[in-house]
């Protein structure tokens, strides 16, 4: 596969409170020029909401998955940390892992700006 010329990258996964994904993705697109990202819904449970009889309540989350070049990864990670206030309580979790191979994703020129 090395002949195919695919280089590695980074996968950034961001677990956010419900409703935070679309505004953040918009900012990532506008300010960082990212296109290879998606989000899905999830539910989260942790120790803080746990009762004596097991897990307490689940909280609705949005999970964003972003594939970026290795050179851009640090910048995007820091941008998300600051923009989504990840360091504040109950504001989610941000993680980054190395990808062995990453296929390039580009949009056709003149695409509709939707």
């Amino acid at each position: 596969m090395a002949d195919a010329g695919f280089s590695g990258g980074m996968l950034i996964t961001c677990i956010l409170p419900k409703g935070s994904a679309i505004p953040l993705m918009k900012k990532l697109r506008e300010e960082k020029g990212l296109t290879a990202m998606s989000f899905h819904h999830a539910r989260g449970a942790g120790r803080s909401g746990r009762s004596r009889h097991g897990l307490g309540h689940y909280v609705e989350n949005h999970v964003i998955t972003i594939a970026v070049d290795e050179e851009q990864a640090e910048d995007v990670f820091n941008f998300i940390y600051v923009t989504a206030n990840i360091g504040d309580d109950h504001n989610g979790l941000l993680m980054m892992e190395k990808l062995h191979m990453l296929s390039p994703f580009t949009l056709p020129e003149g695409h509709l700006d939707e």
Binding site: G87, H90, G92, L93, L94, M95, M96, E97, K98
Partner: peptide
């Protein structure tokens, strides 16, 4: 393995 993670 994660390169890094961030949270509260």
């Amino acid at each position: 393995r994660l390169e890094k993670a961030a949270t509260y």
